[in-house]
């Protein structure tokens, strides 16, 4: 059996003096779509950021395909095939739409990245607005761009932070179709989602976080049975 796409053991992380993750354990198998649920401040975004070394300091173990990442600098972590879409989207104002798309370097040993033509076919809006300044795009277009640019690199493990936040229902549906397409192509996806109704039909497995650690994990098949617990933990 191949190594997990992501295996986190006893991950602790700090922002300065503030201890934000208190021993996160998590395993994601290749090709899985996993959603992190939890209230605001539970540590979901911090978990994604800690995987990439974007928190202050961290301890524990983070392995991707069997490679230990905890001691690597951020830029070398990304080169292990991890694509990150931040909560604030991170579209660069001084770059055009196409420059934003082309910004993340492609991975050396991967030929799995989507071509620009494929990306424009999947997101025709981006093709139309390729010369527009990145931050002049609509919220939905910016979100598509934020995801599209990591698909081009050949990254196989995608960390998506609140991609449905603040978007019109029609855009959210388009993003849901995109996640299904990515899953069918074998991508591994870890999503942080506040929008439970968006995440529920997409995920193979769920982790629930509270106070900087995982408190519950279950598969999609157990979702109905777990609803009372989720109601209690999340108020969904």
């Amino acid at each position: 059996m191949s190594a997990p796409a992501l295996e986190i053991k006893n991950l602790q992380a700090w922002y300065g003096e503030s201890h934000v993750l208190h021993g996160v354990d998590m395993v994601v198998q290749p090709g899985e779509v996993v959603t992190l649920l939890g209230r605001n401040g539970a540590g979901r975004t911090s978990t994604l950021r800690a995987i990439l070394g974007l928190t202050g300091s961290r301890k524990g173990s983070i392995k991707s395909n069997g490679h230990e990442l905890i001691h690597l600098p951020t830029h070398r972590i990304a080169r292990h095939g991890i694509g990150y879409c931040p909560e604030e989207r991170g579209i660069f104002a001084s770059l055009s739409c196409e420059e934003n798309l082309m910004l993340p370097p492609t991975l050396k040993d991967s030929d799995k990245g989507m071509s620009v033509a494929d990306i424009y076919e999947m997101f025709p809006n981006l093709a139309e607005r390729r010369h527009s300044q990145g931050t002049r795009l609509s919220g939905g277009e910016q979100q598509m761009l934020a995801v599209a640019r990591i698909l081009r690199t050949g990254a196989n493990l995608l960390l998506l932070d609140e991609i449905s936040e603040g978007l019109a229902p029609v855009i959210v549906q388009a993003l849901a179709r995109m996640i299904k397409m990515l899953k069918s192509k074998g991508y591994t996806v870890v999503m942080v989602e506040q929008n439970f109704h968006f995440a529920a039909p997409l995920a193979d497995r769920f982790y629930v976080m509270e106070h900087g650690r995982m408190v519950e994990t279950f598969g999609a098949a157990e979702l109905d049975a777990k609803m009372p617990v989720l109601n209690e933990l999340l108020g969904v």
Partner: peptide
Amino acid sequence: RAGTENPRLVEAFGV
């Protein structure tokens, strides 16, 4: 230019 705006994110892309 991107590094001027948000160096941490550019680094998270592998630069």
